[in-house]
Simulated assay, not measured.
Amino acid sequence: MDLNDVKTIIQDFFQENTVTIIGSGLSVAEGIPGMGSLSIELQDKLPDKISEKADVDNWKAISDRLKVGEGLEEALHSQKPTSIVEEKIRETTAAFIRSAENEALNNVLSGAKQFRLSDYLQKFNIRNNGLTVITTNYDRLVEYSCEMNEIRVDTLFVGKFICQFSPDESKYSFCKSIYKLKGQSRVEYSPKVTVLKPHGCLSWYHINGCACSVPHLEKNNCLIITPGINKYREGYNEPFDTHRARANAAIDTALRYIIIGYGFGDDHLETHLMRQLNSNKPALILTYSLSDKAVKVVKGCKNVIGICNRDNGTLVINKDGESFFPDVNLWDIREMIKEVF
């Protein structure tokens, strides 16, 4: 496989009915802390937030696992947090990510930077059916990137300031016009990106018993599912349940996938995603480093291509083998857009 072949393959993914799946790798590239940084932050901040002996002992058992190099997800699976420890993990996580998100947004608004996703989104012809982006991240970088490009965003909430969760009604807020064709009324919708977040968002809160999105509220009791065994229980509450179901439906009906910075570590998505990849639907994985699980997916599925960094160049992997291209960074979506289009 030569470089021109790779570029042609990449171009073929930028069509209608492509679903984009975004993991933490893209946010990390924009300055949002990943799991490693979050582990350090939790070890620093959590001891001052808990006092009951049972909670202190519980956190110590988790922290000891982190100190010897165990990942946060694995540590919280091995040692289930108490309800208080889980609450403090959620609050600390929200505060930590929100601070970094604010800095990233301010850098873009000041003109110092541009979101990596901006050029990427512009390469799609977003029509009536829109584009679906599924992300496991809590931050709002996808939403910001869309609106910086004058693309409307559907998060399944309706409103401007205190937005109500109303997935069936939300689509009608994008109505652009109603016209008659051959005697029948037709609805034209504005181009939009539907952003589905099965792990929650910094904007989401429970207010008076209802799920709401309040973008200007900066409290740390927002609705996010932190790593660990309890995420599977919480994932079946609203609005998580609907976002997960819509994400699964989008995965099932997509013709192809672009997977950015995602390490294949979430059973909620992968039950459906792996079924489609195993049925030979094409997927393009773009990431700095392919996780062991991602390598297994690439090696085991006929039409999946993994593109990652190696020695300041690009390594392209598929079921048939590997190709290395020095001095080109196709794994970074910003550089990939420059090289390919």
Score class of each variant (00 low, 15 high):
313 G>P: 03
272 H>I: 08
318 N>K: 09
255 L>T: 15
297 V>F: 09
315 L>I: 12
289 S>D: 10
287 T>I: 05
313 G>T: 03
261 G>A: 04
258 I>G: 01
273 L>S: 08
250 A>Y: 01
305 I>G: 06
295 V>F: 01
299 K>Y: 08
289 S>N: 10
274 M>P: 03
271 T>F: 10
268 H>Y: 13
251 I>K: 06
275 R>W: 07
271 T>K: 14
316 V>Y: 01
258 I>Q: 03
271 T>D: 08
292 D>R: 09
252 D>Y: 13
277 L>C: 10
257 Y>Q: 07
292 D>C: 06
313 G>C: 04
261 G>M: 03
316 V>R: 04
278 N>H: 15
282 P>S: 05
292 D>Q: 12
307 I>R: 00
293 K>S: 15
269 L>F: 09
273 L>P: 01
266 D>H: 03
302 K>H: 09
283 A>Q: 00
273 L>E: 14
312 N>Q: 05
297 V>E: 03
313 G>Y: 01
296 K>S: 12
276 Q>D: 12
300 G>M: 06
250 A>P: 07
268 H>A: 06
318 N>Q: 09
248 N>R: 14
247 A>W: 04
292 D>N: 12
268 H>E: 10
274 M>H: 12
254 A>Y: 01
252 D>G: 11
289 S>W: 03
255 L>M: 15
303 N>I: 05
254 A>S: 07
280 N>P: 01
297 V>C: 06
254 A>N: 03
274 M>S: 14
282 P>K: 07
297 V>W: 04
307 I>E: 01
269 L>S: 05
309 N>R: 12
261 G>S: 03
316 V>W: 00
271 T>I: 15
316 V>H: 03
284 L>H: 02
274 M>Y: 13
272 H>L: 05
269 L>M: 13
313 G>E: 07
249 A>C: 13
304 V>T: 06
319 K>Q: 14
295 V>M: 05
286 L>D: 00
298 V>N: 02
291 S>L: 09
270 E>L: 11
264 F>I: 12
259 I>D: 00
263 G>H: 08
286 L>Y: 00
313 G>A: 10
297 V>Y: 04
248 N>P: 05
280 N>G: 04
306 G>Y: 08
260 I>N: 00
256 R>E: 05
319 K>C: 05
257 Y>V: 07
318 N>C: 10
319 K>W: 05
265 G>H: 11
285 I>L: 09
270 E>S: 09
290 L>P: 03
277 L>D: 03
318 N>D: 14
245 A>V: 15
253 T>Y: 15
305 I>Y: 15
258 I>D: 01
287 T>F: 04
270 E>D: 11
305 I>W: 14
296 K>R: 08
252 D>M: 13
277 L>K: 07
287 T>Y: 02
282 P>H: 02
284 L>A: 05
274 M>V: 11
250 A>C: 08
269 L>V: 08
